[in-house]
Amino acid sequence: MNTSQTSIRDILYEPPGVKTKRMIQVFTVLSFIAVMLLIYVAVRQFYITGQLDARYWYFFAKPTTWIFLGEGLAGTLEAAVVAGFISFGLAFLMMLGRINNIRAFQAIARALIEFTRGVPTLLLVYFFFLVVPQYGITLAPLWRISLPVAISASGIVAEVLRSGINAVPNGQREAAMSLGMKESHTFLKVVFPQAFRYVIPSLIAELVIVVKDTTFAYVVNFPDLMQNAKVLISNYNAMLPVYLVVAVIYIIINYLLNKASVYAASRTDSTTNTAAS
């Protein structure tokens, strides 16, 4: 057992006794067998239906396939990063409205947050794709995907930021104000930087959702990973292999993002764990 680190498990549960240890071993073996069985069944089924046939896989040996998928990946990352930044900007404004003393701003921010959280991303994508052009506004494909994805995430990000603001001990604000700092400077230089550190892990988690939402790019013909996958599928008539590979790529991106959030969480912990409370 690892004594240098206390996990949530250690806090919530008693250390296992002799009987429990036995049970844990039994269930570990059983679940391992179950997973192996599932994989076997899946692979066997692929084999029977001919999905493992070389004609469905040979094109993965061609560099052009990977270059094409790489371009798609670049598109996905571009859309996700742009959407992430826009979303953060919108969320920051909504959060300011929400923590403002002015009732009207509060009400507007609250309504916007509820709206952006409640509307499905796909609906917003269609809005920017089908409705906005009706007003004579033509957006580049990148914006057609980034804007709706950003708006869709902004409400949740706003609430995440607000929870971070609430988590900053009031004494930090008081200390800055008692030194003669203006309210706005106190917020920007003292409160927000700390709030931001608290919520970095949640923001990264939200970024994972943004990455997944960019798959709606196929609706607006923006060449993201999913869109390029579709092109490959129609060229080679190989749906399952392509989707499998693409799924693995998405899993890797989001796994890395999650790793980053865990790392960020551990870092912020060590510098603020005794934050003057």
């Binding site: 001990p169 930090q172 200390a175 008692s178 003669g180 700092m181 230089k189 930087p193 510098t271 003057a276």
Partner: peptide, 28 residues
């Protein structure tokens, strides 16, 4: 804010800015 600057305050819980160095706390 201007008048608060004339009145220093030391708190029971110190309230040093947790994300800044000691030097930054004093120079901020």
């Amino acid at each position: 804010a201007e008048m608060r600057a004339k009145v220093g305050m030391v708190f029971q819980s110190f309230n040093l800015l947790a994300h800044r160095t000691i030097l930054d706390n004093v120079t901020l």
